[in-house]
Design a binder for these strands. Structure first.
Lengths: 110, 110
DNA sequence: TATAGTTGGTTACGAAAAGTAATTATTAAT
DNA sequence: ATTAATAATTACTTTTCGTAACCAACTATA
């Protein structure tokens, strides 16, 4: 039998942020408004299919805003909402941790 | 060939932390040393198979420490290493964000 | 008219990962 | 060898991901 030992909000937050690619997409958009192809080029190996899917997910969650400019060819801009921008400190902490602990210079484990 | 436009350490850090269940397991272990069954009971719906797999991954990454006590029955304790403990601020920020921006949602029962 | 180029996708399908449930391994005392 | 209480693995199904090809809308050019 299970108990709700974790805060449901926290659990939902983790669910959103830790979905594959979602974090990197948000991190990339923290640099500013970008078009589909810019995000695609910036991220290491995400495919168009997944990028499209995740942007839709994140728009649904109110984290990403999508604006269509009916020019030729069509221009579509993605940016973060306030809710998305508010994630900046999370990524700042992940950055700090990564600098300190990932691929460190021969730190003796154990 | 692809360009490394993201800091490789950050990318690796994201990879570790955002792997499914990994975040919640670490968050749970931040509360203190726990046994397999305790973690299993605390997390909403992770299966034994995945918990075992993730704990091994995290041990491999130097984030989780596994100690075997040859008693009867055998007792195995999981705890965070310094590297794992250092993730506390990350989760603190996710907690803050979740409190501020995630509306309370009822957890779907199993 | 047609055809090529540009952006932002979608579709189809095989591969990989996760979910489920049953089974096995690890312990020391009996 | 048997027992009891975890911890971990195996076998199998379902879901998600990765790759590559294709589509829609638009227009500049031939």
């Amino acid at each position: 039998m299970e108990q709700a030992l974790l805060c449901p909000r926290f659990e939902k937050g983790m669910q959103i942020v830790s979905k594959r690619w979602a974090g990197l997409i948000i991190f990339q958009l923290l640099k500013g408004t970008q078009r589909f192809s810019e995000i695609e080029a910036a991220l290491p190996s995400i495919s168009g299919r997944l990028l499209s899917e995740r942007l839709k997910d994140l728009e649904q969650e109110g984290i990403v805003r999508r604006e269509v400019f009916p020019e030729t060819p069509v221009r579509i801009e993605y940016s973060l909402t306030d809710k998305g921008m508010a994630l900046e400190p999370v990524f700042a902490e992940i950055t700090k941790w990564s600098q300190a602990w990932v691929e460190p210079v021969a730190r003796t484990p154990r």
